[in-house]
Design a binder for these strands. Structure first.
Lengths: 138, 138
DNA sequence: CGAAAACCCGATTCTCATATCCAGATGAGA
DNA sequence: TCTCATCTGGATATGAGAATCGGGTTTTCG
């Protein structure tokens, strides 16, 4: 479903979203809470910080904080940090390039399948996952 | 979007679905038509044959034939041969197991996201991709 | 200013999907 | 039955993501 890096990132973001607002969480705390390998998660958190999704602070009292409101943070934004958002652009039928201007027979239908799958991530926010009772299904 | 193995398999199935019904296509013909590495595709086709999606025949006049009607063959059936259909069962929030009986807060919503993504593959058939004009969007 | 806490980051190793190669097994046709 | 075309499948190489390690840098506090 997700690459393991994206999975770690999503779990980490969920932990941060549930944390007390003022206090940063250390990388090793997040690793323990999510069951992720600590050394690897540190890099993943660093990537999230570079992408602007979390804020990092060094030194004692340092750690990570969510940098985007949970109701503005879609799962697609998290996943895109790690899994290439560009789908395979090669035409499904044959080797030539396939786009909206020169669509192959399967182009529209296949594009729709991909869009549906992406929308499932783009239409769901971190807040949606944490407040299921308040949100209707799409 | 798809693992490259699943991608090869989907393209191969589409080639077979467009082929003249009686005549099998050789692995190397399919590889050339899809732009897949021939040696690797041979294994992929073999896996599809074991799964019953295609029929293989050895010797002269041998090759591969579609074993399932194109309008009965969903993309999910193809992808499931290569990408583990079981999503990560670990609870998104914390380490414990998470299922319908003991759902975590995010369980229903996350399950819905996964179901939407799977449905995009389960509701689309090979025939849908090849006869776009005849099929309404879901 | 010094020490400890915590992130930063390059280098390395591990693992598995991907890819290649080649020796069998099988079947069609002569 | 012989030969050749074709799939079958084991052994092995490659490469990218996953995971680990160690040293460096920044920050708080005494």
């Amino acid at each position: 479903m997700l690459s393991s890096t994206s999975d770690y990132a999503l779990r980490a973001i969920l932990v941060l979203a549930q944390a007390e607002p003022g206090r940063p969480l250390r990388a090793d705390e997040i690793a323990r809470a999510t069951g992720s390998p600590a050394n690897y998660l540190a890099k993943t958190l660093n990537a999230l910080a570079k992408a602007g999704l979390v804020t990092s602070a060094r030194g004692p009292l340092g750690g990570f904080t969510l940098a985007v409101d949970a109701d503005q943070l879609t799962l697609a934004r998290i996943v895109d940090c790690f899994d290439d958002p560009r789908p395979n652009t090669r035409c499904l039928l044959g080797a030539r390039a396939c786009d909206a201007r020169h669509p192959c027979r399967a182009h529209d239908r296949w594009t729709a399948v991909q869009a549906t799958r992406r929308a499932a991530l783009a239409n769901t926010t971190v807040a949606d996952l944490l407040e299921p009772a308040l949100v209707a299904a799409d």
